[in-house]
Structure formats: structure tokens, C-alpha cells
Simulated scan of single mutants.
Amino acid sequence: MTSRVGSAEDRFEFLQTLVTEFQDSDSQDAKEQILANLANFAYDPNNADHLRELQVHELFLDALTEENDDFVEFGMGGLCNLSMDPQCRAVLLQGGALKLVTRCLSSQREETVLSAITALMNLSEPPFGPQVTDPAVLQCMLRFSLSDSPRLRNLAAVFLQDCCSREQVQQVEQQMMGQHGAVGIPLPKS
């Protein structure tokens, strides 16, 4: 039993060391690597409590505001992974993540867009669904569902099926009829 407590403490200390290294580093390359590592650690549910305590979601959210596309991709990937945890979902929505995640739908990087869609799907879990299924997001998903990219097309279709009512989709489709330009959130380049 004591080895489990020790390993949890070791895990926390290791994650804390990564966060400190990220904050103290002046090297963009080192920060990218640390951010990517933290995003990978966010995939493991055993790390969720530690990452919440260390406020790693704040690092990920800050990364979404950077000019560096790698930072945005790794930050979005980390948020996507954290959004699987119900407690993290609430923290993310209270911390204003929805607006930043939605902005990532217009990224030129498909991986960033896929992570953003997946995070939105996770964030749409009750009781947060109405915040996520904004008409602009639905317009974007409808456009993604016509994408040449099978991954983007399929994930958008799953979002529309699982996160939206048929009535919501029909209403947005009607709003989009006759519009010739890009509406709402721009599509990433293929």
C-alpha cells in the first residue's frame, strides 16, 4: 500500500517539476517539448487530480493565445485530454475555455481542429451542452461535415449527431441556405 502512495506523490512531484521547468525556461523548443509532454500526461485519468491541482489547464489555455502553432496544437491537445474528466470539464468552462477552444476551429492545422472538436464534444456533456452548441459552432460543423478530410468530415458528423438535436441542425441549415460566403468560423486549409 505505501508504494501506491509513494508513486502518487512521485507522479505529482514529477508533474510539478515539468510545470516549473515550463515556467522557468527561456527556450521555445524546451517549452514546446514540455507542453507536449504535459498534454500526453493529461490523457491518463490518474493524472487528472494532479494536473487540476497544478492548474495545468491554465498553461494549456495560455498556449492557445500564442502565435506559435506548435504551442496552440499541444495546448489544444492537452485541453482535449483534460476535457474527458468531468471535474476538469467544469474547471475549463468556468475558466473561459469555450471561447478559446472554439477559436481553434479555424486553425490551419488539422490536428488542432480535431482536438478542438473532440474537446467541444466532451464539454457538451450535461449540464454544459447548450453553451457548446452555439449556432456558429453548428455552422462550422456542418461545413466540416463536407470536408475532403475523412477525419474532419467524420468527427464533425459525430458532433452533429451526438451533441445536437435534429431541430438545432435543421435550424442552422435553414439559416445557412442562400449564404455564399464563409459564415461563422472559417474552415482550415486542406
Rank of each mutant, 00 (worst) to 15 (best):
Q33R: 12
C88R: 04
A97F: 03
T65P: 06
V19E: 04
V72T: 03
L59I: 10
K31R: 15
D26I: 02
R89W: 07
L18A: 08
T20G: 09
L59K: 02
C88A: 15
G78T: 04
N40S: 11
C80P: 01
G78W: 00
S83H: 04
P86C: 07
L15C: 03
F60A: 03
E67N: 14
P45N: 13
D29K: 08
N40R: 11
T65I: 15
P86H: 07
L105H: 06
E13V: 07
G78D: 03
D85A: 11
S106R: 10
N40C: 14
N40F: 08
L92Q: 02
L82D: 03
G75M: 08
N81K: 06
L15Q: 01
L35V: 03
M76F: 09
A48N: 04
N47V: 08
V56L: 02
A39F: 03
N68D: 15
F74S: 03
C80G: 05
E73Y: 04
L61I: 12
V72W: 01
V101Y: 03
L79H: 00
Q16I: 05
Q33C: 08
L100T: 05
S83W: 04
H57A: 07
F12V: 04
F71L: 14
L54H: 02
E66Q: 14
L82R: 00
C88Y: 02
G95F: 08
L15Y: 02
F71H: 06
Y43S: 09
Q55M: 14
M84F: 12
S83V: 02
Y43A: 09
N46T: 10
G77R: 01
D70T: 13
L38K: 01
Q87F: 09
N37M: 15
F60N: 02
L64E: 04
G95M: 05
P86I: 12
L51R: 00
Q23N: 15
L54G: 01
V56C: 08
Q28A: 15
S83F: 06
F12Q: 01
D85W: 04
N68K: 10
L35M: 07
L15N: 00
E53D: 15
V56K: 00
R103I: 11
N68G: 11
Y43H: 07
G96C: 05
F22P: 04
A90Y: 14
P45Q: 10
K31S: 04
S27T: 12
A36W: 11
Q23C: 15
K99H: 12
F41K: 01
G96Q: 09
E53L: 11
C88H: 10
E67V: 13
L105D: 11
G95Y: 08
T102F: 04
F71S: 03
E73V: 06
V101Q: 03
Q23S: 14
S27R: 14
R103V: 11
G95H: 09
E58D: 15
D44E: 09
Q16C: 07
L61D: 05
T20F: 10
C80S: 13
K31E: 12
A48W: 00
D44A: 12
F71T: 05
V19T: 06
T65F: 06
Q33W: 06
L64S: 01
K31T: 06
Y43W: 12
L100K: 07
N81V: 01
I34N: 02
L79S: 05
S83N: 07
G96H: 10
E67R: 11
M76I: 12
F41S: 01
S27C: 12
